[in-house]
């Protein structure tokens, strides 16, 4: 619990600051941040990015990394409308195929990493290149979309749980909450979750304790790729169309940054789902802030986000050291 207080505090600070700067002291009498429209959008984005961040958190907890998420998002994101419109497949075939492809991708990553002992960075970097290339080749670089069709399927991305007449909680956020709850239960209440934490900290000790570490790691990569695939599907249902050349670009980095902000160590063995969700929320909030504040040019977006992440992890690391020193002092007394 203590671990997520820092990131939660940072999130609230940026939230209040954005509200003050964008609305209260903006000199304009029309609010741009504290509006229902903005919050619906913000929640939707948090949901979409939160889903892929939860996925990568599993991999990061094992001490691995998945750089291919953005390309999986792209492959599924253009593949789904391609199958539905170009190939004319029924929804009940296209959706399982899209998710199946992501499962197979995750399985392939896991097998290459555990059985051939290839480095996760390399395997998934190649994945990043391969799936992007496949998506572009498959579509010949053309934009694919749903146009006005597939209204039922699109509800997954655009439906809202109505709260007031003009405000509702968007479906992707609800899906994310559901996934996060399941993920948190898996991580904290099952032997699989405990094994992931143990092997992320010390794979050799875990293996010598009788844990099938390879199998656990493979499952982590499958979860990551499957959630990337689900994310890709929801993203394209939300935007209605996808351009294979840039759809999902950098999404792996957003997801990894969210996980790290949320307390996952890239060394493995650490992290909470709640932290990761707040991390993802903070990323989207910052993006929103930059867009709403007229005196921050939009094109320095990456620089701002990068700086905030760096500051966040630096403060976290320093806090950890102070805590360790205090603990040592206590024991000594």
């Amino acid at each position: 619990m203590k671990r997520i207080l820092g990131i939660l505090g940072l999130f609230l600070a940026v939230y209040v600051l954005t509200w003050l700067l964008a609305d209260v002291f903006s000199g304009s009498d029309r609010a741009s941040f504290m509006t229902e429209y903005n919050h619906v959008n913000l929640l939707k984005r948090v949901g979409l990015y939160g889903i892929i961040s939860v996925g990568v958190a599993f991999v990061i907890i094992t001490g691995g990394i998945d750089l291919s998420i953005g390309s999986v998002v792209c492959l599924v994101g253009v593949g789904l409308p391609f199958m539905l419109t170009e190939l004319g497949w029924p929804v009940l075939l296209a959706v399982p195929v899209a998710l199946g492809v992501s499962l197979v991708i995750g399985l392939a990553h896991g097998l290459l990493i555990t059985k051939l002992r290839l480095q996760p960075f390399i395997v998934t970097l190649c994945g990043l290149l391969i799936y992007r290339g496949l998506a572009r080749g498959l579509t010949n670089d053309q934009v694919y979309g749903f146009q006005t069709g597939f209204k039922g399927l699109k509800q997954l991305a655009v439906w809202r749980l109505p709260i007031t007449d003009s405000f509702g909680i968007p479906a992707p956020f609800l899906i994310m909450v559901l996934i996060a709850i399941v993920a948190a239960i898996v991580l904290n209440k099952t032997t699989f979750g405990r094994y992931l934490m143990a092997l992320g900290n010390n794979e050799e000790a875990a293996r010598l304790s009788g844990i099938q570490t390879d199998r656990m790691k493979i499952v982590a990569y499958v979860i990551c790729a499957a959630l990337a695939g689900l994310g890709g599907m929801l993203f394209v249902l939300d935007t209605n169309s996808a351009a294979p050349a840039d759809f999902g670009n950098f999404f792996e980095l957003y997801a990894i940054a969210a996980a790290v902000l949320g307390g996952c160590s890239l060394r493995g063995g650490q992290g909470t789902i709640a932290g990761v969700i707040i991390g993802a929320a903070l990323m989207r909030l910052l993006y929103n802030t930059i867009n709403l504040l007229p005196w921050i040019p939009n094109n320095i977006e990456f620089a701002v986000i990068g700086t905030v992440i760096l500051a966040g992890v630096t403060v976290d690391e320093l806090a950890k050291r102070v805590a360790a020193r205090r603990r040592a002092a206590q024991r000594d007394a």
């Binding site: 405990r194 934490m197 900290n201 010390n202 000790a205 010598l208 063995g269 650490q270």
Partner: peptide, 16 residues
């Protein structure tokens, strides 16, 4: 290196 998960608790190590 091989016997313990150092960053985990006594309880979690004992039950591993």
């Amino acid at each position: 290196a091989q016997g313990l998960v150092l960053e985990m608790s006594v309880r979690e190590n004992l039950s591993l």
